[in-house]
Simulated assay, not measured.
Amino acid sequence: MTNMTTFLSSLDRPTPPADLGHELRALWWAGRSEWSKAHAQVDSSSGRRAAWVHAYLHRWEGDIDNAHYWYRQAGRQLPDQSLDNEWHEITRSLLRELSPQL
């Protein structure tokens, strides 16, 4: 997985690409509106990236108190943007970490 275009086109497949880490797999499932499968990818993961994805998922779920907790763990504030925009922001950020030249 090297860029956003490739990531987005992979959403048509039945399963996420094998080379994705937990956080990007969670975002992949979220991109397919599969909240439970997305959450399962980061539920036991640690680190700020996983916390950011976890926060986003609880915001999407509507559990704002839980989302606040996870945003704090990620070192972030609850965003003032649409869920769709945040999904794109997180996905782009994590993909850039994998391929910094993008």
Rank of each mutant, 00 (worst) to 15 (best):
Y56H: 13
S33Q: 11
A51R: 03
Y71V: 03
D12K: 12
A18L: 14
Q77E: 15
A30D: 12
L57Y: 06
S82Q: 05
M4L: 15
M1A: 14
D63N: 11
W35Y: 14
A74H: 09
S93D: 14
R49H: 08
N85S: 10
E34T: 04
D63R: 06
A18E: 15
H58W: 11
R13N: 15
M4T: 10
D19M: 09
W52G: 00
R13W: 09
R32W: 04
G62C: 13
P17A: 09
T91Q: 08
H54G: 06
H68R: 14
Q77C: 02
W28D: 00
A74C: 08
Q81W: 04
D80Q: 11
L27Q: 02
S10G: 07
L95K: 06
G21H: 01
R59F: 05
A38D: 01
I90V: 13
W29C: 01
R13K: 15
D43Q: 14
L83C: 00
D12V: 10
Y71A: 03
E34W: 03
A50E: 00
L98Q: 08
E23C: 01
D19R: 11
L57D: 03
R32T: 07
A51V: 01
L24F: 00
E89M: 07
A38F: 02
T2Y: 12
T15C: 06
T5A: 12
Q73Y: 07
A30E: 09
P100Y: 09
F7Y: 07
G31D: 13
S36V: 04
R92W: 03
P79L: 10
G75T: 07
H22I: 00
R76W: 10
T15F: 10
D43A: 11
N3Y: 04
W52Q: 04
A38L: 03
L94R: 01
L8F: 10
G47R: 06
H39F: 10
L57P: 01
H58V: 05
R72L: 09
S93E: 15
A30V: 00
E34Q: 15
P79Y: 05
P100G: 09
I64Y: 08
S46A: 09
A74K: 04
D19K: 12
K37Y: 05
R92V: 08
P14E: 14
L102T: 14
E97N: 08
R32L: 07
Q101S: 14
Q81M: 11
T91V: 15
E23D: 10
A30Q: 08
H39I: 03
P17N: 08
A26N: 01
L83A: 04
Y56D: 00
S82A: 07
W29E: 00
S45C: 06
L27M: 15
Q101R: 05
R25N: 08
R72C: 07
P79M: 05
L78C: 12
T91H: 03
T2H: 13
